[in-house]
């Protein structure tokens, strides 16, 4: 299986925008969606990306983050959840797959998302969700991580 591109997620609290050093977290692009994106961080409950969800419209550029949980009954396949999040206007979607072992495998099979879809887990995810819990406005920039040329890596 070919390695996937890694993402750099830089998050800055709006109140620290001028001075503050961003939190940098690594993730994995899926679905051939590697690319750059920027927007405000916005959490979505996993059940809000279902067929029965009404279209809660956000204004302005935002980046959706969803904490997936294996105990939450899956109302839609993750590919459709990712697309639904993008259809709701997200500039990119970040899935915290720390507590949903199958999610990573399911999403890695995807291809051709129109905008970046990134998986995060472990400490990186913990940092991001910790920020969400503070419920403070934050700006997120997602970029492709540049690997040094000579390194062969396999994921």
């Amino acid at each position: 299986e070919h390695p996937l591109l890694r993402a750099l997620i830089k998050v800055t609290l709006l109140k620290h925008e001028a001075t503050g050093k961003p939190i940098v977290v690594e993730g994995l692009f899926v679905g051939g969606s590697a690319g750059k994106a920027e927007g405000r961080l916005m959490q979505y409950h996993p059940l809000s990306l279902c067929n029965t969800s009404e279209d809660e419209r956000q204004d302005g550029d935002f980046i959706t983050i969803v904490k997936l949980e294996h105990r939450v009954p899956r109302c839609l396949p993750l590919l459709d959840k990712a697309r639904m999040a993008l259809d709701k206007g997200a500039q990119a979607v970040i899935f915290d797959v720390s507590d949903d072992a199958n999610a990573a495998a399911e999403l890695r099979e995807a291809n051709s998302f129109s905008r970046p879809v990134v998986l995060v887990e472990a400490q990186g995810a913990e940092d991001l969700m910790g920020l969400v819990n503070k419920n403070e406005e934050a700006n997120v920039v997602i970029e492709i991580k540049v690997e040094p040329k000579w390194l062969h890596y396999d994921v």
Binding site: E1, H2, P3, L4, L5, L8, G31, G32, A34, K36, R108, E109, A110, N111, E143, I144, V146, E147, H152, D154
Partner: peptide, 20 residues
């Protein structure tokens, strides 16, 4: 293997997709 020809973040990346 996948190759990225990104010289600097934000520049056009001629990326060969190696997805399934």
């Amino acid at each position: 293997e996948k190759e990225e020809a990104v010289e600097a973040a934000g520049r056009d990346a001629a990326v060969l997709s190696s997805q399934a």
